[in-house]
Amino acid sequence: MKIAIVGATGNVGKRIVDEALHRGHNVTGIARDPSKLSPRNGLTLVKGDANNPSKLSQLLVGHDVVISSIVFLDSDIALLIEAVRASGVKRYLVVGGAGSLEVAPGKLLVDQPDFPDFVKAEATKGGEYLNYLREIKDLDWTFLSPSALFTDGERTGVFRLGKDELLVGIDGKSWISYEDYAIALLDEIENPKHIQQRFTVGY
């Protein structure tokens, strides 16, 4: 497939680029400073800004899939959706957050008293992003939420998938590596099971 990744130089974006190339896809890495990524076979690096929809849409034309892997606070979902729609690409995947996952029926992780203050604004914006997507019917979107701790790790290929509830392991921890998250995202691209849905991944 031809896959465009907006925010390809971030912690998650880089792993998604690696996983997509590993599987033989053609990847366009879009970032404000694409020089942060090393050129490789199958990878086209281009400069682009998520907040400039007219230019971004031109970069997205001709792709099979668009992946958004950018900080929610640094972007405007309406502008991103405008760019995707204008490009003609129907498949749109978003690197989501964990804050909007439920820890109990009707109770979100972001609203819990021990939720870290320094990520609360970003988590809240992520929840707003998901709610915005849920009203969109003309794109085949998917929002993949990581577990509570999203960090460097190993590519194991061993993880669980869930829907709207936070996944917690038998050790009481809720986490997923960037590398295994990328596997789950590419699995969804190659074998779609969550069209116009959110799902989550964790150990």
Score class of each variant (00 low, 15 high):
A83C: 02
V158S: 10
L93T: 00
S147V: 09
F72E: 03
L109G: 08
A78H: 12
G62Y: 02
T28Y: 00
D171W: 13
T28S: 01
P192Y: 03
V168H: 05
F72W: 10
E179P: 07
P113Y: 13
Q112S: 13
K55W: 03
D64I: 09
P53N: 07
A8L: 02
G13Q: 04
K47R: 11
L56Y: 02
V66K: 00
S35F: 04
P146W: 02
E179K: 09
G127M: 06
L167F: 02
L60Y: 00
H63W: 05
V27G: 01
N41T: 13
L185E: 08
Q196E: 12
S147Y: 09
F199A: 11
F199Y: 15
E190R: 07
L144N: 06
G62C: 12
R198W: 09
K90H: 02
A98N: 08
A86M: 06
K107M: 15
Y178F: 15
D76G: 01
K193V: 09
K173C: 06
W175D: 13
Y178E: 08
V66I: 07
N26V: 05
G10M: 02
S174E: 11
T124P: 07
N131R: 13
S147C: 09
L186Q: 09
V110E: 06
K173A: 14
H194P: 07
E82G: 04
W175M: 14
V84D: 01
T151H: 14
E128G: 14
V103I: 15
E128C: 04
G96I: 00
D76K: 00
G106H: 08
G172L: 07
K55H: 13
F150V: 06
G157H: 08
L21R: 12
N41G: 14
F159W: 11
D180F: 06
R160S: 10
H63K: 13
I195D: 11
G42H: 06
W175G: 15
A104W: 03
G24R: 03
L186T: 12
R134T: 10
L56A: 01
Q58I: 09
R85F: 01
G7Q: 00
D180W: 04
G97R: 03
W175L: 14
D140I: 02
L186S: 07
L45A: 10
Q197G: 05
G7H: 00
R160F: 05
A121V: 12
I5Q: 11
S69R: 03
V110L: 12
D117Q: 13
N41Y: 07
D114G: 11
S174K: 15
N131V: 06
K55P: 06
R23L: 07
L186C: 10
D187F: 04
T9N: 07
S38N: 11
N26A: 10
V84I: 09
M1S: 13
F199N: 14
L101E: 13
R40L: 12
V17R: 10
